[in-house]
Simulated assay, not measured.
Amino acid sequence: MNSVDAAGLGIGDDHPPRIMGVLNVSEESPYDPSVYDDPGEAAGYVDEELIGEGADIVDVGLESANKRFDVLSAEEELERLHIALETIESVSGDAIFSIETRYAAVADEALSKGFDMVNDICGFADPAMPTVCEDHDAAVAKMASPPDRERPGAVEETDWASRKSPEWAANADYVDQVYEALKQNGLTDKTIVDPAFGGWSEAQTLEDDRETFRRLREFRALGRPMLVSINRKNFLGEIASRETEKRLPVSLAATSMAVERGAHVIRTHDVAETRDAALIGSAFTERSSAAADGVTISQLDVTSSREFRIQLRERGIDPAFADDWQAQLLEIEGLDGDASERLTSLAAEHGAVVQPVSDARLLLMGSTTTVSDIADRLSAENDDLSAFGEKLSGVLR
């Protein structure tokens, strides 16, 4: 995992989780507590409610990214930039300032006048953005998005058949598309990846967000720190049947889980509470590494065959190797004696092991390849064990 130096602030596995507080200077922004058009009042809010509560980074938005509003042009964003610049000049606290924009010209002006990093919600749709950030030696958060400055975050609207291949497009699920969108137009050495949680298009569903969250560790294979923006999001609120104003508890629970799954920056409107939740997640995260005499050993985050395959693929190694090396330990309960004997016999044929635990339970141990082969054999046989084989295959996905 490559750490990023954001104007002296370390972001990555070797550093504490960083909290990104939000300030909006956009009158159309739907979240009123963070919206200011007076630099003095805005600076007071930043000092007291953001930095004072533990924010390491302050993300300043010039316009609302909500799809219900028209997109501002670069010229219109630049007209608002002076409020943001006057604000950060008046802030007394110590933090890194990030400009949220989709335009390289706005990023260039902001970085030239006092901002430290960029939050690009359109994922380098402006092809000049990576160069601008590199020229300023600035960190940049890159949100998964199509190469279209008008459609931030709407990854499923990308013509993947032409950008990748028809075969890839036919087989890719939503999370695959998010992952690939982050790779589009490259990554700088100081890129922080953002998987784009939230309703960025009509086609994106709450289940899409939940699946992205479940598979958050997969994005670590990109080798870059990760930012997540999940504060009070709908995909969390629906689980607990809570409206926005009552979603803080679910947001905090998800924050701890996100940090444990690999997030390094949490973007939030609830700074103090989110900071505490992130620290809990960090305290109970287990990632081993060691360094001595110029040699570094890092244990990669692999908890599933899918994560194993992605880590190999990103390093140019055949992902199929993962299935031969990823271990599976499955406890099975409820098979009768004949079925248990059949499973034991098949396991021995394929190099796996079945170990009885009690009269009703047994353990199936083997690589993903061997267990998959057993599942396929059972599924193909037209008997009482075919349904069990299909269930076994489903567990391995």
Rank of each mutant, 00 (worst) to 15 (best):
P17K: 02
D108A: 12
L78F: 03
T255A: 08
S256V: 06
H269V: 11
D126C: 09
C122D: 07
R149M: 15
A138L: 05
D94L: 02
A154P: 02
A277F: 02
V175E: 02
K391R: 15
T296S: 14
M143I: 05
A74W: 00
G54T: 12
L343S: 03
E77W: 03
T191D: 03
K164Y: 10
L364C: 06
I19K: 06
E86G: 10
E202R: 01
A380Y: 09
P39N: 07
Y36N: 06
G294N: 08
R242Q: 15
T370N: 13
E48G: 14
E390R: 15
R397Q: 14
D126N: 10
E63Q: 12
T296N: 12
P130G: 08
D5N: 15
F97A: 03
A278F: 05
P39I: 02
A283E: 13
D126W: 01
S92V: 13
E41C: 13
L343G: 07
A170F: 05
S26C: 08
G61K: 02
S305F: 05
P249D: 09
L182D: 04
R397T: 14
I374A: 02
F321L: 14
I121Q: 11
E211Y: 02
M1T: 15
S298T: 15
L227M: 10
S229P: 09
R261M: 12
G294E: 01
E27Y: 08
A141C: 15
I121K: 06
G294C: 04
E211F: 04
G10H: 03
R306I: 11
I121A: 14
G394Q: 15
K190R: 11
L378Q: 11
A125T: 12
D173R: 03
T268Q: 01
V58H: 00
A258T: 06
R397V: 14
F284H: 13
M143K: 08
E211L: 13
A196L: 07
D270Q: 08
F124K: 07
A203W: 01
L362T: 10
R313Y: 13
E273F: 07
E150M: 11
A170M: 06
L396K: 09
L248Y: 09
A161F: 07
E390T: 15
A347Q: 02
V193G: 02
S34T: 08
G262E: 01
D384M: 11
S92P: 13
R287I: 11
G316K: 04
V371A: 02
V35P: 03
L252K: 01
I83L: 12
T296D: 13
D148M: 06
T368D: 06
P30S: 07
D176S: 05
G153L: 02
A139H: 01
E134V: 06
I51A: 01
R342Q: 12
L335H: 04
L9E: 06
S282P: 09
G199L: 05
I11K: 02
A125F: 04
I266N: 04
D159N: 10
E349S: 13
T296M: 10
Q311W: 10
P356R: 02
A181N: 03
R18M: 10
M20K: 11
D159R: 08
V91I: 11
D56R: 01
P152I: 08
A138T: 05
A128V: 13
K113I: 09
P39D: 04
A125Q: 09
E77V: 04
E79I: 08
D94F: 03
D137M: 09
V132N: 07
D176W: 00
T188S: 07
I230F: 00
A161R: 12
S372T: 13
H269L: 08
L81C: 08
A42K: 04
